[in-house]
Amino acid sequence: MEFSPFNTIVKRCLQGMEMEAKGNPEEANHLFRQGWEEATNEFEKFLAAYYVARHQPTVAGRLHWLTIALEHALKADNEATKSALPTLYSQISACYDDLDDVENAKKNHELSTLYGAAPSDKGPFYHGTKADLQLGDLLIAGGLSNYQSELVMNHIYFTALVSGAGLAAALAKGDGPERVYIIEPTGSFEHDPNLTDKKFPGNLTRSYRSQAPLKIVGEVTEWGKQTPQAIQTFRDKLDNNKGEIIN
Rank of each mutant, 00 (worst) to 15 (best):
148 Q>T: 06
156 I>N: 00
179 R>Q: 15
158 F>T: 06
164 G>K: 02
167 L>G: 00
186 T>P: 01
155 H>Q: 12
187 G>M: 10
182 I>P: 01
161 L>D: 14
176 G>I: 02
172 A>W: 10
151 L>F: 04
148 Q>P: 05
194 N>H: 10
167 L>Y: 11
157 Y>I: 02
184 E>S: 07
159 T>E: 11
147 Y>M: 08
185 P>E: 03
167 L>F: 06
156 I>Q: 01
169 A>F: 11
190 E>A: 06
185 P>I: 14
165 A>G: 13
161 L>E: 09
146 N>F: 07
160 A>C: 03
186 T>Q: 12
164 G>C: 08
176 G>M: 04
170 A>Q: 14
191 H>D: 15
166 G>M: 02
183 I>W: 02
184 E>W: 06
187 G>R: 06
194 N>P: 11
188 S>V: 04
184 E>K: 07
180 V>N: 04
180 V>W: 13
161 L>K: 10
151 L>S: 05
155 H>N: 14
147 Y>H: 14
171 L>F: 10
145 S>D: 00
183 I>P: 02
149 S>C: 07
172 A>H: 06
174 G>C: 09
168 A>L: 12
169 A>K: 08
191 H>Y: 09
160 A>L: 03
175 D>V: 07
147 Y>G: 01
150 E>K: 14
161 L>R: 11
183 I>L: 05
147 Y>K: 05
159 T>S: 15
182 I>K: 05
176 G>E: 12
163 S>K: 09
154 N>Y: 04
187 G>I: 03
189 F>C: 02
148 Q>F: 06
187 G>T: 01
167 L>Q: 05
164 G>S: 09
183 I>Q: 01
155 H>R: 14
150 E>P: 00
151 L>C: 04
191 H>S: 03
